[in-house]
Amino acid sequence: MRFSLPLPRRSRHPLIRALSLVIGLVVVGVLMVFGLMVAGVLLVGGGLVFALRQWSRSRTARPAARTTHKPEVIEGEFVVLHQTRHAAR
């Protein structure tokens, strides 16, 4: 079964066609300006949050440097699973 909508009829009057083109361009322009404003707010806000974190991190007392470095090790138990059957694809 194929679902199809009827094609919208385009107006033949040239003034209506030009007006619909101008309205479409205005709507696209408004959406682009709104998107750029949102992107600018996010960029400035992210920069301020980053600067605040760096400033607060530099103000806190830093612990003394460790002389010996201990690597972080994840300990655990491991079990080998033997697969006797192949999974159906």
Rank of each mutant, 00 (worst) to 15 (best):
L31E: 12
V79E: 03
A18D: 03
M32T: 15
G35P: 00
Q54N: 14
I16C: 04
R9P: 02
L36M: 08
R62F: 08
Q83I: 04
R10Y: 11
E77D: 13
A87N: 00
R62G: 09
V33C: 08
G46R: 05
A18I: 04
V73I: 15
L19H: 09
A39N: 12
E77K: 04
S11Y: 06
G24H: 10
A61F: 01
I23F: 04
R59I: 05
H13R: 06
R9S: 09
P6R: 05
V33G: 02
G46T: 01
H82C: 00
F3V: 09
G35M: 09
L48P: 00
L31P: 00
A88Y: 03
V44T: 08
R9Y: 13
P71M: 07
A88F: 07
A88R: 05
P63V: 05
M1R: 06
R85K: 11
L36R: 02
G40E: 02
W55K: 03
T84S: 10
V79T: 04
K70A: 11
S4G: 06
Q83T: 04
Q83A: 02
I16V: 15
R89Q: 06
E77F: 06
Q83D: 03
F50E: 10
L5T: 11
V38N: 08
R9N: 12
G45Y: 02
P71R: 13
R2E: 13
A87W: 14
E72H: 15
T84M: 11
H69S: 08
P14N: 02
I16A: 12
A18C: 05
E75S: 07
P71I: 08
L15D: 12
A39S: 14
S20F: 06
